[in-house]
């Protein structure tokens, strides 16, 4: 195994309580903390561990978006990635467009393995990895909670509704990772300094010649239907009575 590509999406931080703008045009992102999508961070950690075990030569992180995504790519470099690619786009790009961008980089840089988060915590789409596998004509192993790398194959434990599914895929492949795969490392200050010297390549999306395909338009946003706060009971007897009242016990 030679080169691993890891996608890093810039998203509203996991801990931020997201609010819809009052005019329904989007969610509030002004002055909100932005981070690497947590699933992508796990994907990067896995890539770094593969490299540290001597099974990969290079870990490349990639992001698609505005120049702001450089922050997340620098964090990825500080974690240990060797180089970064920012594909600059003004508007938002759908999953199909992202998958096509990744495919063009796979071809250009001869990538052997792609590790992605199983979903982004902003749009919750869970699409890019599967789409990339389709376009690339290579295996996909989604929702990975454990991976064993054996030369030209990988044995992936997938978290599925029924339990765990153990799938073997030939490499090259796309693996999308779930939360329990690993715990990403913390970035240390000297690594942040070192990361500043690592290469970060910027490519305009137009220069890649990628057609993002027909986009799905976001027309409006609204807050979810709220549940009303109910009643508090004092003890088990009160709870049982309340349940009986609703015909539930």
């Amino acid at each position: 195994m030679q080169k691993i590509l890891v996608g890093l999406k810039r998203v509203v931080d996991y801990n931020v309580r997201v609010r819809v703008k009052s005019d329904g045009s989007g969610v509030e992102t002004d002055g909100v903390k932005m981070s690497i999508n947590p699933f992508d961070e796990i994907a990067l950690e896995e890539a770094l561990r593969i490299k540290e075990s001597g099974q990969a030569a290079e870990v490349i992180v990639i992001s698609v978006g505005t120049g702001d995504a450089q922050q997340q790519l620098r964090t990825g470099l500080a974690m240990g990635a060797d180089r970064a690619i920012l594909v600059e786009s003004e508007g938002s790009v759908g999953s199909l467009g992202i998958a096509r961008i990744f495919k063009s980089i796979i071809d250009r840089d001869s990538i052997d393995l792609v590790l992605l988060g199983k979903q982004a915590i902003d749009d919750d789409n869970s699409q890019t990895g599967q789409m990339l596998a389709a376009i690339w004509g290579r295996p996909q192993a989604t929702f990975a909670s454990q991976v064993e790398w054996n030369g030209d194959k990988a044995k992936v434990t997938r978290e599925v509704d029924a339990g765990l599914e153990i799938t073997e895929v030939d490499l090259p492949a796309v693996v999308t990772v779930d939360l329990r795969l690993n715990e990403p490392r913390y970035v240390k200050l000297p690594d942040i300094m070192k990361a500043k010297k690592k290469p970060l390549e910027t490519i305009a999306m137009a220069d890649l010649g990628v057609d993002p395909g027909p986009e799905i338009k976001e027309l409006s946003f609204e807050p979810p239907a709220e549940r009303e706060r109910g009643v508090m009971v004092d003890d088990v007897a009160g709870l049982v009575a309340a349940l009986k009242d609703k015909g539930l016990a």
């Binding site: 759908g94 789409n125 869970s126 699409q127 599967q130 389709a134 376009i135 929702f143 027909p214």
Partner: peptide, 23 residues
């Protein structure tokens, strides 16, 4: 939108050159 559909449908969408409406 179970793990079955989440795994499969985006793959179908990409083969048909469209984006997917999830969930």
């Amino acid at each position: 939108s179970t793990t079955f559909g989440k795994d499969l449908m985006p793959h179908v969408a990409a083969l048909l050159s469209v984006n997917q409406v999830s969930d």
